[in-house]
Design a protein around this nucleic acid. Structure first.
Lengths: 347, 347
DNA sequence: CAATTTTATGCAAACCTTTGCACAATGTTT
DNA sequence: AAACATTGTGCAAAGGTTTGCATAAAATTG
């Protein structure tokens, strides 16, 4: 049987309430008593039972994360490991633990959320948005349960979210390419229904408009989040009469897929075509050539999400906020100014 | 105020005990009652308070993970994200959640463990061993608290651990290279004090011995877990009069570092030298050339660790076990048979 | 139909804390 | 020296479950 607060109280010759107050540094406890009680706690190796504590305080000091279902690709994609690292680091330094769960389908996922929320297992939830979590968001909103969304919801405005500005990021990248002299810039998005795809496309489009350049459908294509998914799209682009001189991709992995495909077909990056990735993952600097990328501050987003959620849980304001983490262009050798070698020679 | 079990009981006209028994599918409850109570639970949107439940059952259905302190490199190294993915997936499918915590130094880390263990926050702990966790292991052992170690402890034998057989893995890789005709094989380890470095060196050594080849000190070198750390060591190797024809490295990132260094110095892989990585991370197939690697089943280790821990927690045996996850050589283009081009031409 | 077994339910204690309120023992003011 | 304020501690209720034991009702047996 484990040591409880009454064991300590008994041995110290005080009441359990006093011990409890010593633990919580209640100012009403005298120095003498406090010291005495602490010594006994030490001796007995006492540590409070968190379950009992939570039961009465209705607080657990746990933050919940729902891992997106198709966890595999996402995880491999280093996005999630980075964001989780940010969350756990920040949480730990604020005295919170992080509880992760997942479900193999939408129903299980919702059940998991209900369990965490209604079972009072966590004080707040971080949603790693990547798809249709809209009804889970509604569920949380209805119950006024503290949560923050990493990403952007198209249906819910009045929530707390942490995100990067994908429109601006794509705009910046496109603009910089334009400034370098590129005029035929392709955009290889992720699955078209994702917000991130749409947002980045907007930024890309905006930059073109500003430069007075037309939006060419043949320069817009769709890939997944894998290198393989990029192959066909890359070849289609390179087979155009008016090849792009640069391709902006949705992710470093996709960028890599493009580079590899070109290489396999006898074309060099950046000589034949510049390629830009997104997320500045470890792979972007580990590629030959190193891939220019946009660092969207994933780790920072994790920290920020945890920070905001904790503030909310503690009732320190917020309630509604859209926090934007700044991005940064990381220019590397996969990009060069458009050169003479970049004219289509075959087909 | 949230719905409790007595609200349900009241409305259903039964006692709280009955509701509790309905929830736990107690066989003594009649069909009729069960159906009636379930309907009310549904209507009221009732979900049991896990804290109260845990308090009495002394069980939380949470598994704890202590993230190693210098979390950054490790995380980036994809090792931890893979293992966590395995753990969370398995845990979720067995009805467990995963609670992650960390500390910024050894003391905090120990405090975190105490909190989880003595605070009854988790039912068991998975230790991601990478350093001196020996005293934490002792702590857990002393209290007979269920835990499994991912990796190997040099000081504690009678515990449950999940690991791959690094000796065998390095042996297999070395042997395969020998079979392909390589005789001058270098070994680039991680930090020498790590068990993984020692074990893999043993396997390498064993294979050489068996083949009747001498162990040459100039072929043994040490790197970290970064590409940069490989540079100097790689050049030292290539500047030898008797250059190795193959280099076995401790990790894919290091392998990449070697490849890049060679490339920067006008040498090609595998023409000038074969390079083998470890861990079969995403990067190994994303490199040009793709890096041959040893898949040590990280995801599988995570699954296995969770599975074993859950069995232990449920009291289903174990108590002591060393579970070995099989490894697999993944041969890719960074390896070839030693060729004529592989003779030192300068210096 | 009485006696006995089986089945279904309820009572109340236990799990370990926290905390509002009461109270005793000091210290301070007039 | 009486009245009052302050300080430090304890009592007991509350938080929401589970579960051993008792019991009522129903089913079975002789």
């Amino acid at each position: 049987m484990a040591i409880t607060i009454v064991d300590v109280a008994l041995k110290a010759g005080v009441s359990p309430s006093t011990v409890s107050r010593v633990i919580s540094n209640d100012s009403r406890i005298s120095q003498k008593t406090s010291k005495k009680v602490r010594k006994i706690m030490e001796e007995l190796g006492y540590h409070p039972n968190m379950m009992a504590k939570s039961l009465v305080t209705k607080t657990t000091h746990n933050l919940g994360i729902i891992l997106p279902r198709p966890a595999e690709e996402l995880f491999r994609n280093q996005f999630f490991s980075e964001i989780i690292r940010g969350i756990v680091t920040k949480a730990a330094s604020s005295g919170y633990d992080v509880l992760m769960t997942t479900g193999i389908n939408a129903d299980e996922e919702e059940a998991a959320v209900r369990r965490l929320v209604q079972g009072r297992v966590v004080d707040g939830i971080i949603m790693l948005s990547s798809r249709q979590d809209e009804h889970i968001i509604s569920f949380l909103k209805d119950r006024k349960f503290p949560f923050v969304l990493v990403g952007r919801s198209e249906h819910h405005a009045d929530i707390i979210s942490v995100d990067n500005d994908n429109v601006a990021a794509a705009y910046d990248v496109t603009k910089k390419l334009l400034e370098q002299g590129h005029e035929r810039i392709a955009f290889m998005s992720g699955p078209a229904n994702l917000t991130v795809s749409k947002d980045r496309f907007s930024g890309y489009h905006k930059a073109l408009l500003e430069a007075g350049l037309p939006l060419r459908n043949e320069y817009i294509c769709e890939a997944g989040f894998t290198a393989e998914s990029a192959s066909q799209a890359a070849m289609d682009l390179m087979n155009l009469n008016n090849r792009p001189t640069a391709i902006i991709t949705i992710d470093d992995v996709v960028a890599f897929g493009v580079i590899r495909t070109l290489w396999n077909n006898g074309m060099l990056v950046p000589e034949q075509c510049s390629v830009i990735g997104f997320n500045n993952t470890i792979m972007s600097e580990m590629c030959l050539p190193p891939i220019a990328s946009v660092d969207i501050g994933i780790y920072q987003m994790g920290m920020s999400a945890a920070h905001t959620l904790i503030s909310t849980v503690k009732g320190e304001g917020y309630g509604q906020a859209r926090i934007i983490v700044p991005h940064q262009l990381i220019w590397r050798e996969s990009v060069s100014v458009p050169g003479a070698s970049n004219v289509k020679t075959s087909g």
